[in-house]
Write a protein that binds this DNA or RNA. Structure first.
Length: 486
RNA sequence: GGCCCCAUCGUCUAAUGGUUAGGACGUCGGGUUUUCAUCCCGGCAAUCCGGGUUCGAUUCCCGGUGGGGUCACCA
């Protein structure tokens, strides 16, 4: 049974790169009929952020990436589900202390009492000498008595992993075999002086205890795999399979970071991107099931997901293409779903407007919006007759009298038209076009002033769509208002 | 700098030991159209360089170059 995990640290927001790691873990688990686990890696006390876990859970839930095991939100409270919990590392500290004892006992880990100052100086010296910066094992050969004495005296200490001689080989699913000389690997701190484990220890212990079969994470972790492999060996455990994902990059091809633009999923949601867009787009950043298809549902992605097809090289995050894709998704949304999606972007008085009216506006305006926020902004133009220069009513190939003549005619037609006909854009079009054709007018002479009379804008949907949106009564009001202006 | 990873249009990518190297975004041009957008059609645009293996390499191997990651009591 495949068991994978997404193991973020709660920083207060979900990074786009993190979203992809979460998504690939999720897609792989679902594709394999396995279990997707969420584990919170909050072992750094100095980075504690109030409410960060809640915010992370909320965002993942919005994105539709829900764990089979791990923490989740219920009535805004963090609950946990699964037999391998707790799934929040700060609640597992006693476990790590228990397991580190085994490493001390079998001498694959050791106490280190070196001060931060000593370590800093050591590093500086090594840098000056252009050597690899590593711990010099100053404390490795302390006797049992010396260690006990220091512990009794309450001297602060850390526990380090003792890297053995030789080299470490491992197989990465995406990259193939990788060999690194152990000389390159530092005696990594496993337990910090505050008693908390570092990432490396907590990660290995938890992955083992939780029965993780595949570790899928970003490439930035590739160089610390030897530490983990050595840790597994030190415990006498079998290591899971590793798959290191290519990085998501800035325009300049460096690791995607703040400063060069938005990186938080929450930022993109706030800008008006749909969760589906983000999922679809991010899934295709480093993976492609089919060359000639761009839009995929989550189910399609799950079915098509193939871990061996993941690319090796980093992918630039191109917001232009994201924007295009969001426009596609907005157009794909049906009226009711769209209303739900844009509600958060509406002002308080706009939220209360009639849903049918809103649905009509959205179904027409969605053709020219790439962001939900853009769409929401258009709503206000429909709530009142905007003020406009009367000369706007006159088409470039006509004059004032002509505009007035047609507006009066259209007003009359609309006035005598049944409410029923107003339920169909097509019927409205047939009606207006009938007026144009029987009198042999040109489209522009009639349609331009009609359209402007209805919306007051140089650019807008067609007059047929506007008539349909406003309905008979409001349309007449606007047409007659325009006639008065002329 | 040491170590590790990577290399197809500007960007995301497809493909193959023999193809006119395909698609998408963007861009440019055209069409539809009362406007804008949508939509449709078309153009420009890529196998990093050098060796080898081979009848043939963009594909396989080696080297170079370039880019990235990582070198914490952060994850």
């Amino acid at each position: 049974m495949v068991r994978v995990r997404f193991a973020p640290s709660p920083t207060g927001f979900l990074h786009i790169g993190g979203l992809r790691t979460a998504l690939y873990n999720y897609l792989f688990a679902k594709n394999q009929g396995g279990v997707f686990i969420l584990r919170i890696e909050d072992t750094d006390q100095t980075r504690y952020v109030e409410g960060a876990i809640e915010s992370l859970l909320r965002t993942l839930s919005i994105m539709g990436i829900n764990p089979d095991e791990g923490p989740f939100l219920e009535d805004n409270k963090i609950k946990q589900i699964g037999e391998f919990g707790p799934y929040i590392q700060s609640e597992r500290t006693s476990l790590y202390r228990e397991y580190i004892k085994k490493l001390i006992e079998n001498k694959t880990a050791y106490y280190c009492f070196c001060s931060q100052e000593r370590l800093d100086n050591l590093r500086k010296e090594q840098e000056l000498a252009k050597m690899t910066t590593k711990y010099d094992r100053h404390c490795l050969h302390l006797t049992k008595e010396e260690i006990e004495k220091k512990l009794e005296a309450n001297e602060p200490y850390v526990i380090r992993l003792k890297i053995p001689e030789g080299e470490t080989r491992f197989e990465d699913i995406i990259r193939g075999p990788i060999t690194i000389s152990n000389q390159e690997v530092d005696d990594q701190v496993l337990i910090k002086s505050d008693g908390f484990p570092t990432y490396h220890l907590a990660n290995v212990v938890d992955d083992h205890l939780m029965g993780i079969t595949h570790v899928i994470r970003a490439e930035e972790w590739l160089s610390s795999v030897p530490k983990h492999v050595i840790l597994y060996k030190s415990f006498g455990w079998e290591a899971p399979q590793f798959a290191h994902l290519p990085l998501v990059l800035n325009k300049d091809r460096s690791k995607l970071s703040k400063r060069q633009g938005d990186v938080a999923v929450e930022d993109f949601l706030a800008k008006g991107y749909l969760p589906q867009t983000l999922i679809n787009f991010i899934a295709l950043l480093g993976f492609n099931p089919k060359a000639d298809q761009e839009i995929y549902t989550k189910e399609e992605l799950i079915n098509a997901f193939d871990i061996s097809k993941i690319n090796k090289s980093g992918a630039v995050f191109d917001e232009q293409k994201l924007l295009w894709m969001n426009g596609q998704y907005i157009r794909l949304q049906t009226g009711f779903d769209l209303i739900k999606s844009i509600k958060p972007f509406l002002s308080s008085n706009e939220v209360s407007i009639d849903e049918n009216f809103l649905e009509r506006i959205c179904s027409v305006e969605k053709e020219r919006a790439s962001l939900l926020s853009e769409l929401a902004q258009k709503i206000s133009d429909y709530l009142q007759i905007p003020s406009y220069d009367p000369s706007l009513l006159v088409w470039k190939k006509a004059d004032k009298q002509d505009a007035r003549k047609h507006l009066e005619a259209i007003s009359a037609i609309v006035g005598s038209c049944s409410e029923e006909k107003f339920q169909s854009i097509l019927e409205i079009e047939v009606m207006i076009k009938g007026y144009i054709q029987t009198n042999q007018f040109s489209n522009g002479n009639v349609l331009w002033p009609t359209r402007v009379a209805l919306c007051g804008l140089a650019q807008s949907p067609s007059p047929f769509e506007l008539l349909w949106i406003f309905g008979k009564e409001e349309s007449l009001r606007r047409l007659n208002h325009a006639i008065k202006l002329l």
